[in-house]
Write a protein that binds this DNA or RNA. Structure first.
Lengths: 190, 190
DNA sequence: AATTTTATAGACAGACTTGTCTATTTAAAA
DNA sequence: TTTTAAATAGACAAGTCTGTCTATAAAATT
């Protein structure tokens, strides 16, 4: 029943899996080609270079991430519930991928400053996520006059990011659970 | 006036600089040897392999980190002040290294599960840091009977780790400043 | 002063890397 | 059916990587 995927899709699917699980630098073009059953010329036809493939990998990762988080927040009505759903989605996603951590943070550690295109993609993704979460915090706290909503929003964002990296280190969900609980506390009792 | 360093020290110093700034996988043995002015045989005499060198690099990084943080917290008396000093040290350290991020998190992203020895070192370092900060939180909050001190301690730890990674992404100190402020709020008004 | 340890320089093996190129085959469009 | 486009297989270049080895020179020790 699965539609037959073209070479481009097979490359992207395989690269995504390998980049995430083994790392970008530890994954050679040849391994991608072998596991995707694609000829080398096809890869360089569809993607100009490994660096370009990395950029597309990140672009696709961003789309999937926001599609996923939208799915989890979409079913909630109150902004506070939507924010909690962000943490629930995170817990689900990290567990599903066996605690491989964040594609974007992992890549940033690997490339350093050697790929401006990938760096740009990573920074944009995180900036978008930051705004996304702050949007819920603003709605949840609107009316609370003198409160520094920006400060609370960024604190929750930092808890979220901290939870991502610590879940990878400890291979456990406790960081997400605790970050979520603290985020809820900050919304309610500030 | 600087003491002449032996080959072992020169290797470690150079490797530390290059691993941190370029990444582990992007730094070849030969580059380390060239910049440290050391013969290849000397490297394999003092360190058995590149992996071993990585482990020693992390061990030394841990020692330097805790020596540094001790220096900043040591001059403070109240546990709340000591905790704030942890954030001040972080801000100083990240700026000093031009926002290269955390040696341990960077390495973890690079090696994946390919080096159990390095993984162990990284997990131990972070576990020790977690306990170190929780110690201050416990002392600062002792007496506050029913309060879940463990929960507050881990929340502050997550803010700290989030600040590390976000400072790297945005190349700015705002994550540390905001995390510090939130940590202080949690200690005072919880 | 003679001997042992330590460091140096660099060739070399073997395997890996990205990217290019040729030649052939399959698939789609005219 | 003929023609045009897309995919395949794989050799190849030029470079990288870690790690081993030999031979020589400098230091430290006896």
């Amino acid at each position: 029943m699965t539609k037959k995927l073209g070479p481009r899709e097979r490359i992207l699917e395989t690269a995504s899996r390998l980049f995430h699980s083994q790392g970008y630098n530890n994954t050679g073009i040849n391994q991608i080609l072998a596991e995707a059953n694609v000829a080398k010329a096809s890869l360089y036809q569809h993607f100009g270079s490994k660096d370009d493939l990395g950029v597309i990998y990140l672009k696709q990762g961003r789309e999937e991430w926001f599609a996923g988080i939208e799915q989890w927040t979409g079913s909630k009505k109150a902004p506070g519930q939507k924010l909690s759903a962000c943490f629930d989605f995170l817990e689900y996603a990290l567990q599903k991928d066996n605690y491989l951590g964040c594609k974007f943070i992992n890549m940033l550690s690997e490339i350093g400053s050697s790929s401006p295109l990938m760096s740009k993609e990573i920074i944009e993704h995180k900036g978008k996520l930051r705004q996304y979460m702050k949007g819920f915090v603003e709605k949840a706290l609107e009316g609370n006059g003198d409160l520094d909503i920006d400060f609370v929003g960024d604190s929750i964002y930092l808890l979220y990011e901290g939870a991502i990296i610590e879940s990878k280190i400890y291979r456990d969900t406790w960081p997400v659970k605790k970050a979520r609980k603290m985020a809820e506390m900050l919304l309610k009792r500030v």
